[in-house]
Amino acid sequence: MTRLLQSLLDGVGVGSTYALLALGISLIFGVMHLVNFAHGELITVGAYTAYFFFLHGGSWWWMPAVIIGAAVLASVATEQIAFRWVRNASPFTMLLTSFALERLSHALWQIFVSPKQRPFPKPAWVFNSLTLGSVRLEVMDLVTIGVTAITLVGTAIVFRRTLFGIAVRGAAEDFDAARLMGVKANRVISGAFAFAGLLAGIAACLIVMRTPSAEPAMGSEWLLKAVIAAVIGGLGSFSGAIIGGLALGLLETFARAYLPDVATRLDRFSTGIVFIVVALFFVLRPQGLFTVSHAERV
């Protein structure tokens, strides 16, 4: 029972970070049919921002705001500099553009900072834990779950109640129709990128609180997981992205807790297996768990 609760807690903790990232990927996919491989780089941007501010006497009191701000700015900048110009090109072109940005980001951090890991101080409370009965609750887990829950509720409110949110949801369903209804494409897409940046910034805060260091390629691992989560949930489906993220987190934690032997043996093949699962998903249920239908008019 204890182990179950513990795994559940850990799984939700990791999974909610995946969910935040997957939501951003799904959001961008919704408005411009792009799987943004550069999305993970927002985490890297956040981490390096934290590193630079700590070099000059930063404090965890205001660091989250700075990290989130940097991620939002970077996200909007990629849209303005790159994605805006390939918006009407083939999905192929957009995908490669995002790939190019990812490469460029890796290389630039390596050249201008260092290929090596750059650590910075962690918040003092991060590894504190409280024991409730027989379950050990890590403060960080609670913070992660709490922050994610608040963010998701906030996101839900934004998408249901505000004009921006409704426009984005409309655009995700059918961009041409949304445009006819007076939705301004540029503003919606910039807004979507800003919002995806905000979600990635929050995720970046949670990630660097746990492992306070910056590394050129740190975003890519997270990106891979987030893309998988978004695919499982059905690209373009917002609730699907959240459930996909949580499912992936729980799956990972439970596999490690309950099947440690199998997990270690399979660890050698982990990426391969995950990708086979994703590939199967694509073949058997290309629309993901949650359908967003796009009927093509002929």
Binding site: A82, W85, V86, A89, S90, T93, L96, T97, F99, A100, L101, E102, R103, L104, S105, H106, A107, L108, Q110, I111, P115
Partner: peptide
Amino acid sequence: RLDIERFPDVFLGGTMLLVMLLRP
């Protein structure tokens, strides 16, 4: 500085980005 592989990466990323933007 061990960045012998990095400059080609900048070249690759940059070229790909420029081509995608200017001549898809």
